[in-house]
Write a protein that binds this DNA or RNA. Structure first.
Lengths: 101, 101
DNA sequence: TCTATAGTTCGATAAATTTCGAACAATAGC
DNA sequence: GCTATTGTTCGAAATTTATCGAACTATAGA
């Protein structure tokens, strides 16, 4: 499996970030990544099938929120926090501090 | 025309706010309301038909972002900034300071 | 090489969203 | 009451999104 394509942070649109975060499952994923650092896809499913999770991680990657690296058979996902803080100062902090509401 | 129903601010979900803001036209509306205070629906259309604007304003109202009051035949819309700042501290500021990106 | 594991991709279906014209409702002003 | 203005509601079509099973790919380890 080839490494994934991640958008350059300057190409990331606020609109896409907000859309990615407007799904409860994706918000929960982002929240957990913020709390716990890296995580594999299966570590964050909630009994949902792999194909659904794969879809959501792709949305998060395409929106510039998440970075995925290959480690053996496992895909480790992490929040692109530094990138996002640079591109949209204060946004992630505000969102995460209000997440779950 | 009866006054509109606006959700109580404590019933507003972050998820719905982010979804409402993930549309470029709605983001632009919110941005202008933040800049210029109240505005009528037609003042913010961009050549779009009335029914489309009405739809977007309804999404914004239902998401708790916008308040609409009746003034004669005109509907004046304003951002529920105080309510939103209370419910989601820092969120609107962060979004608006990054809007347009 | 064989097998188990992790995740992607494909295809189909269902649900939600966007868009806009047309008909309708409410108010202001004459 | 009549008319113009503002905006809503309805209905339909087009697009996007979510969901999930099934087939497939890639890697680790025995």
């Amino acid at each position: 499996m080839r490494p994934f394509k991640h958008p350059k942070i300057e190409d990331v649109a606020l609109e896409h970030v907000l859309h990615a975060l407007s799904d409860p499952l994706r918000m929960e994923i982002v929240r957990q990544l913020a709390d716990e650092g890296e995580a594999s896809c299966t570590a964050l499913d909630r009994g949902r099938p792999k194909s659904s999770m794969s879809h959501h991680f792709r949305v998060l990657r395409d929106a510039g929120l998440v970075s995925t690296r290959n480690d053996g058979t496992v895909h480790m996902n992490s929040l692109r926090r530094d990138d996002l803080d640079k591109r949209f100062p204060g946004l992630l902090t505000a969102v995460l501090s209000n997440a779950g509401k």
